[in-house]
Structure formats: C-alpha cells, structure tokens
C-alpha cells in the first residue's frame, strides 16, 4: 500500500479545521444560538479567525526551516487563501448583518472610521496576494511576485492596529498578539531589512 502523502493529509486537515468552525458559527448565528448578539459574534469570530490564520501563514516558513520539513511550504498557499476567505466573510458580515447592506452607510463608515481604513488596507493587501497566488500568475510575475508578497508583513501590522483600535478598553489580548507578530517578524529580521533597503 502506498503511504499517504503528508502534504495531502495536512491539506485535508487544513480544509476541515478552517471550514468546520466557520460553518458551525454561521449555523449558530443564523439560528440565534451564538450569544445574545449573533451579529457581533460572527464579525468577531471571522475577524479573529482571519488574524489567527494570518499568523499561522507567517509561522509556516520558520517551522519548515526549523524542523527541516521542506514539504510544509506547499501548505502555505492554502492557509493564506483561507486567511483571505475569512477576511471576506468578516467584511461581508459587517456590511450585511451589521449595516443591513446599506451602501451609503457602508461607504460612510469606510470613509469616516480610521480603524476601518486600516482593516480595509489590510484587506486590499490580502486581496492582491490572493489573486496573485495561482502558480501561473506567480511564474508570470517572476521576481516581482516575491516583492509583492512581502506586503504580508505590513498587512499583519495594519490588521493588528485595526484589532487594537476596535477594542474599547480590553487591550491585553491585542498586546499578546503584538508580541507574537513581533516575534514572527523578528525571525525574518534580515529579510525585512533587505526588503526595506532595496524595495
């Protein structure tokens, strides 16, 4: 019997881990079983979920290096795309369920709220990374692909500020996240320095 390819196994696990809680949370929110405010619950779930997955994508290459598991890199694109997927859900939840799909109110909020600008700019970066993720596009972009995808680092900071700013007072959790982000960035200190210098 052929042994299962670890990349395949991990990919299946990623699909399950990403989709199961999302589907359950939507089910609970739709049927009003997600706390007293099912709208806030699903906005927060998808927001924090997108950020968690973003941090996970940043963990892939250090882990691959540290544990000498080169094949791990093949899972990174899928994880990154799930981050974008959660961010799409997050944005849609806000517009649909919080603002009732009112276009004018949505645009007003996008323009007026600094913490939303940051979320939006994070979202735009994720969008650009997602549409350039297919291998064919990657080949076409050549060296520019890596340049573009370095933008995930500023995105992590933008999203963090968005998260921090959306909180009323409880900032202990955002600061724990900041610590993790800074560690993940510090692991790539040299790469980041080069990027900033030669960009």
């Amino acid at each position: 019997m052929k042994t299962l390819n670890p990349v395949f196994v991990i990919k299946v696990a990623i699909h399950l881990c990403a989709l199961t809680p999302l589907l359950f949370n939507y089910y609970w929110s739709i049927t009003d079983q997600n706390g007293a405010d099912p709208v806030k619950a699903i906005i927060h779930f998808t927001g924090i979920g997108a950020l968690n997955i973003l941090l996970l994508t940043l963990l892939v290459s250090p882990s691959a290096k540290f544990f000498k598991l080169g094949w791990l890199m093949q899972t990174r694109r899928l994880i990154g795309l799930y981050c974008f997927f959660y961010a799409c859900c997050h944005l849609l939840n806000f517009w649909w369920f919080e603002l009732g799909f009112q276009v004018s109110l949505f645009i007003e909020e996008l323009i007026k709220r600094p913490y939303i600008w940051l979320g939006m700019s994070g979202f735009v970066i994720l969008f650009l990374l997602a549409i350039t993720s297919p291998h064919s596009v990657r080949r076409k972009l050549g060296k520019n692909w890596q340049r573009l995808h370095y933008w995930i680092y500023p995105a992590s900071i933008l999203v963090w500020i968005h998260f921090y700013w959306s909180r009323k007072a409880d900032i202990s959790e955002p600061f724990l996240y900041l610590t993790v982000i800074l560690i993940l960035l510090a692991l790539r200190k040299q790469k980041l320095k080069n990027w900033i210098r030669f960009r």
Partner: peptide
C-alpha cells in the same frame, strides 16, 4: 483552539 468560539474569542484566553 486555533479558531475559537466567540465565547472564548482569543488565542490567548487561556492566559487569563
């Protein structure tokens, strides 16, 4: 867990 339920909405909730 990686993606938590909203009643425990954070990676780091176990700390508190």
């Amino acid at each position: 867990s990686l993606i938590t339920s909203p009643s425990h909405a954070g990676l780091f909730d176990w700390l508190k």
